[in-house]
Write a protein that binds this DNA or RNA. Structure first.
Lengths: 216, 216
DNA sequence: CGCGTCTGACTGACGCGTCGATCATTTAGC
DNA sequence: GCTAAATGATCGACGCGTCAGTCAGACGCG
């Protein structure tokens, strides 16, 4: 795969194709994206797309990787300056809320990625590589909080399983337009999970502070 | 839609087509199912499929409805004889665990349904109709438990949001082959949610009993 | 500097396989 | 013998991938 999908020519053009491809996938869906559509957005021809990528599937898979990598880098930068573990978790949650178009599109990509992975086990390795990063981010933040003495000693892996499951499930509800879930109630639910499972105080601790930090 | 998809002829043949279609969708994916494939399983021709359904999309959408309805009926029957609210919830969870091929396929259908609904808002009404049933089942069971005096007076809707989100998220992890989630840890996680949010005792109550009932 | 050559990005019309849908025809039931 | 049910060859649209060709700029050489 490395040499097959390794781009020829200038990487800016190649990136332009990927940058055009992934929002298209997010909005129309993997199976409804035509090579012609990507070419049109880049202001180029279908031949050019095939000049940089062997086939349509390669464009789409690379676009997937591109999108996930971009998001991961963005999150990493945002978290770098936050020391307090609780605030890191809250910031992590805040960045996952499908509020803007960007994050909504990223969730759409994930949803489709899940579907394809479920149908085609060959994608599992790639998927789990991506997903593990996000899960590890939670686990490491919990451990940090426990070292800082602001979190109870809950099993970090078990907690991360719960938090990420609830996050994914809630995002689905929002994307599908479920009437009983909104961005606000998603935030509230996730913050509540943190309070319930990590807080030192039995009643859940500083809810008010959490809500404020969550909106930052 | 009503008259367009309303079947002609004997309903057994029509149902046979749907019965053949939905596992095919679950295993190969909506977009990879050919009319020819469905016909082949039924031991019939593509013409017959089009005799009962106007187009391919109609077959697939009806198959979706068929699958969801069947599952809902099955669950309703299983729950009918269970009086105790906690045992009802545990049974509900147990039936959602993607352990066998049947339930796995149903989750695959849901996953694809979510994806399509996210991409095509016209499906939202249908999707929310289906989803609401499952959410209501949880809400009503919680209320029942509160009337029975075995559940704390947590907000049933908020609780249902959490439980269903976590369920959906956990199922996705299992279907995508995530290394840190198994059927057992999914069960454990969901039972733990019940204990934490509904149990009368502060420590979570009868975990042992719950685990046993869960396997029934 | 000027000329010829070469390379490599880019084009877009076309071939070809695929698949949904059609419809003339056959078969079965009453 | 009439109607409903079922067939499957055939049509036509669609879209991926190919490939012969264009063009601009780099390069070498006198």
């Amino acid at each position: 795969m490395t040499e097959a999908t390794e781009g020829r020519g200038k990487p800016d053009r190649r990136n332009a194709i990927l940058e055009a491809a992934w929002p298209l996938i997010a909005e129309r869906g993997y199976h409804h994206v035509r090579v012609q559509d990507i070419a049109a957005i880049c202001g180029t021809s279908t031949g050019t797309i095939h000049y940089y990528f062997p086939g349509k599937d390669d464009v789409l898979q690379e676009a997937l990787r591109y999108c996930v990598d971009q998001a991961f880098i963005r999150q990493g930068e945002a978290l770098r300056q936050i020391e307090n573990a609780r605030k890191r978790l809250l910031a992590l949650i805040e960045m996952q809320l499908p509020a803007g178009v960007q994050v909504r599109n990223e969730w759409s990509i994930w949803l489709q990625f899940w579907t394809e992975t479920c149908l085609n086990p060959e994608l599992r390795a790639l998927h789990n590589d991506f997903y593990e990063r996000w899960l590890d981010a939670v686990v490491r933040t919990v451990r940090r909080g426990q070292r800082q003495g602001i979190f109870r000693d809950t099993d970090p892996v078990v907690f991360a399983r719960l938090l990420t499951s609830a996050t994914d499930g809630a995002a689905i509800k929002i994307l599908t337009g479920a009437p009983n879930m909104s961005v606000d109630s998603m935030r509230q639910m996730l913050v509540n999970i943190i309070d319930t499972h990590l807080s030192l105080l039995p009643d859940g601790g500083t809810r008010a502070e959490a809500a404020v930090a969550g909106r930052a």
